[in-house]
């Protein structure tokens, strides 16, 4: 200890004039002790395979890329018609068109909302059943299997095959089809959030004699809830797009309007409808993204940090003189 403290950092006498003037103990033969750089072979092969798959997939689609360049002439024509429709002066009739597009879009949003709520209600318990750290293995395997089947089936199939015979093809059928299909993805994402939970609070709750239900309520839920809400909201955004597509098949909402308009080639109204879809979707996406950000990252970050710094300086644990024995 004493000789190392007397060592001066600058200008030490290095016998032999070695290339490392700052450290007296440095010896070139120490190089032998350096670890060999780990192989990246696996990583590079994976990258290569990914590239091959990508190129193969592109060529397998068999798309005629040449046609992409020469846009069909009538396409330009349609866009012009749509543009004229959007730009036309707001006569009473045109106003009616905008309003009906907006009404239909609202119905689509409602369908998406009901679907999301249904999915959210079921996804929380299903998420726990599909989380490896919460559920015994046999049940976990079964639930995971059911969920992956649900995820594999497109919403449209749910709407036609299951809901049509029961409710007829309408807004309710669309909403429930979206709900079921939401359960699949939501539960999977929630189960992953549950599996990633910090084990510490769980252990301390277990050590104080809490039951499984109490541990879920007070150690798991508080940890995952922000993430769960964000997942639900994101699914709502996805469901809005999906409900528009379901509408084309007759499940009501903006999709139904759009398919009716396509039927009569009312390009001006199609333009108006598309603008409404895009604007409403963007607005809802923005609001939802803002809420998700708030929920995940917490609102008043600056205040919390300031409070912690304040606390660090005092924090002396002097108990009150007359504390009752417990």
């Amino acid at each position: 200890m004493s000789d190392s403290s007397s060592k001066t950092p600058q200008n030490p006498p290095t016998p032999g004039g070695e290339s490392q003037p700052t450290t007296g103990q440095y010896k070139p033969d120490m190089l032998d002790a350096r670890p060999v750089k780990p192989s990246k072979l696996g990583y590079n092969i994976a990258l290569l395979v990914l590239g091959i798959v990508f190129i193969a997939a592109i060529s397998a689609t068999g798309a005629d890329w040449g046609r992409l360049v020469q846009l069909p002439g009538n396409m330009v024509n349609y866009f012009t018609l749509m543009g004229q429709g959007v730009a036309q002066p707001l006569t009473a009739e045109v106003q009616q068109h905008w309003l009906s597009a907006f009404d239909n879009m609202l119905e689509s949003v409602q369908i998406a909302w009901i679907g999301t709520v249904v999915g959210a209600l079921f996804s929380l318990p299903m998420g726990f059943l599909a989380a490896r750290n919460m559920t015994p293995l046999p049940l976990y395997v079964v639930v995971r299997f059911i969920l992956s089947v649900i995820r594999a089936v497109p919403e449209i199939v749910f709407a036609i095959a299951i809901m049509l015979p029961i409710f007829g093809l309408g807004p309710l059928a669309g909403a429930l089809a979206l709900g079921i299909s939401s359960i699949g993805t939501l539960s999977k994402l929630i189960s992953e959030a549950i599996e990633g939970v910090d084990q510490g609070p769980l252990e301390s709750a277990r050590a104080s004699g809490a039951t499984q239900v109490q541990m879920i309520r007070w150690a798991v839920l508080p940890q995952i809830m922000p993430e769960v809400i964000a997942i639900w909201l994101y699914r709502f955004e996805v469901n809005i797009r999906a409900s528009a597509i379901l509408g084309v098949l007759g499940a009501g909402g903006i999709g139904s309007l759009l398919s009716a308009l396509f039927g009569v080639r009312a390009w001006d109204r199609i333009g108006i409808t598309l603008v409404v879809i895009v604007v409403v979707t963007i607005i809802i996406d923005q609001i939802s993204a803002w809420i998700r950000h708030r929920v995940i990252h917490g609102a008043p970050k600056k205040e919390a940090r300031a409070a912690r710094e304040r606390d660090d300086s005092d924090g002396v644990g002097v108990p009150p003189a007359g504390a009752h024995p417990i």
């Binding site: 510490g200 252990e203 301390s204 104080s208 004699g209 039951t211 940890q223 809830m225």
Partner: peptide, 21 residues
């Protein structure tokens, strides 16, 4: 075991509080 744990408290190196409540 649960009854035992109710009368045996435990504290940990990493505090193990639920930080969001």
């Amino acid at each position: 075991i649960r009854r035992l744990r109710s009368s045996v408290g435990m504290i940990f190196q990493s505090f193990n509080l639920v930080t969001r409540i």
